[in-house]
């Protein structure tokens, strides 16, 4: 595995730490941090600032019952939320989005497959499977798109993206990512708007596949 060269921008890590990042992007950040020590360290530095601000916040007295209520619950049974770990190329947060089940790929044509992980007013997150040499259809962006490589690599007008690398694209970037030779490329892609395709037919299919 080559070194990660495309990281999460600092402002995005700060927004993630403070909880102000749309869910699909938060999934990309959490997945990248799971495999990138540099960004984990940077995120923890932001948490340190957040902690310092918490320490400096003016205290508001808690009602007397609160402490008694918390202390009384220390031994109460509780069911911890399941913790998902990496499975193959898929990091823990992606496995959590899949609820631990193996991905159920849907064919998009030309050997390209996808699994839709979430789609709502915040945007969408999906896994993409792109065979070597195959292109993701030529597309521009209505909003912001983050793509994290989980297996293989792809190249486009911006550069080459290997495992752990994140490409961030906005309205200004019109690009055609092509999977490199070798392993099929598996990516986690998140957008806050539907992609728009230039070719007529993919545009017709867009609502069908919700790509």
């Amino acid at each position: 595995m080559t070194a990660i060269t495309h990281h999460i921008p600092d402002a995005m890590l700060a927004a993630y730490a403070s909880g102000n990042l749309a869910q699909p992007f938060a999934l990309v950040v959490a997945s990248h941090v799971s495999i990138c020590d540099d960004c984990r360290a940077a995120l923890e530095a932001h948490q340190a600032v957040g902690g310092a601000i918490l320490e400096g916040t003016r205290a508001v007295a808690a009602s007397p019952d609160l402490k008694a209520s918390v202390l009384a619950q220390l031994d109460a049974p509780h069911s911890p939320a399941p913790e998902y770990r990496r499975a193959g190329p898929l990091p823990g947060p992606v496995m959590a989005a899949l609820k631990g089940a193996p991905p159920r790929w849907k064919r998009l044509g030309m050997g390209v497959k996808q699994v839709l992980l979430s789609a709502d007013q915040d945007g969408s997150a999906r896994l993409l499977y792109i065979p070597p040499g195959q292109a993701v259809p030529d597309h521009g962006h209505n909003g912001l798109e983050m793509t994290l490589v989980l297996q293989g690599s792809f190249s486009d007008e911006v550069g080459r993206f290997g495992v752990g690398d994140v490409e961030i694209a906005d309205e200004s970037l019109d690009h055609t990512p092509i999977a490199d030779a070798g392993d099929p490329c598996i990516c986690l892609a998140a957008t806050d708007a539907p992609l728009r395709f230039h070719a007529f037919v993919p545009r017709l299919l867009q609502p069908l596949f919700r790509i």
């Binding site: 959490a30 799971s34 823990g92 959590a96 989005a97």
Partner: peptide, 8 residues
């Protein structure tokens, strides 16, 4: 709903 968090 749960927020995505990094693997511990």
């Amino acid at each position: 709903e749960g927020r995505p968090v990094p693997e511990a």
